[in-house]
């Protein structure tokens, strides 16, 4: 098998916050009836978490389940486990209407680290970061392309976008994070 590489090879930039491409990340799109018992079992087996409530992401170690829309979840697992997880989800959801797709290589993931991480993002996304709840995933736009972001740790945001737009997103983040350009410097 060919060697997998992430969209930008882990490039990073340090401004008033550090923005970096996070490297390979297993991502699986699951569509179906999120309230069904089979779905709950399948997600539990895949990530060890419950099916997230609307607009929430539940993280368990290096795995997570995120709510994308009323009938769609994004499952995050380590890159090397994605193929096996897809097979397990397919098996667990058999007999019920569902779509499971490995989208790891169709997406790019970024991390925005630093005490003012939200200030770099609020220049790009029409999101009120003051009211963004703990454990909330927000699908929005980053400048001109679709993105989803959540607070992945203290002083750290994670952002996913389409891989084809990775260069654009990183460029926008890099400009947005330049030293001295914070909207609220104090």
């Amino acid at each position: 098998m060919s060697k997998a590489v992430s969209a930008l090879g882990g490039v990073s930039h340090k401004g008033f916050v550090e923005v970096s491409e996070a490297g390979l990340q297993g991502m699986i799109t699951v569509r179906g009836d999120l309230s069904s018992a089979k779905m709950k079992k399948a997600v539990k087996a895949a990530t060890g978490t419950a099916v997230p409530e609307a607009r929430r992401i539940v993280i368990a170690g290096d795995k997570a389940a995120a709510w994308m829309s009323p009938d769609e979840l994004l499952i995050l697992v380590p890159y090397t486990e994605a193929v096996a997880t897809v097979a397990a989800l397919e098996e667990a959801l058999a007999g019920e209407h569902h779509i499971v797709a490995d989208v790891s290589d169709a997406r790019a993931m970024f991390r925005i680290k630093g005490a003012k991480a939200s200030q770099a993002l609020l220049k790009l996304c029409p999101v009120d970061f003051e009211t963004l709840a703990e454990g909330e995933i927000r699908r929005t736009r980053a400048a001109q392309v679709a993105a989803a972001l959540w607070k992945s740790a203290e002083d750290e945001f994670s952002l996913v976008s389409f891989r084809s737009a990775a260069g654009y997103v990183f460029g926008a983040l890099e400009v947005s994070a330049r030293t001295g350009s914070e909207p609220f410097p104090a």
Binding site: A54, R55, P70, P126, D128, R138, T140, R141
Partner: peptide, 12 residues
């Protein structure tokens, strides 16, 4: 009404 986000025009 589906996800409860107060979305501004450019997101729609």
């Amino acid at each position: 009404p589906y996800c409860g986000v107060k979305a501004e025009e450019t997101e729609l």
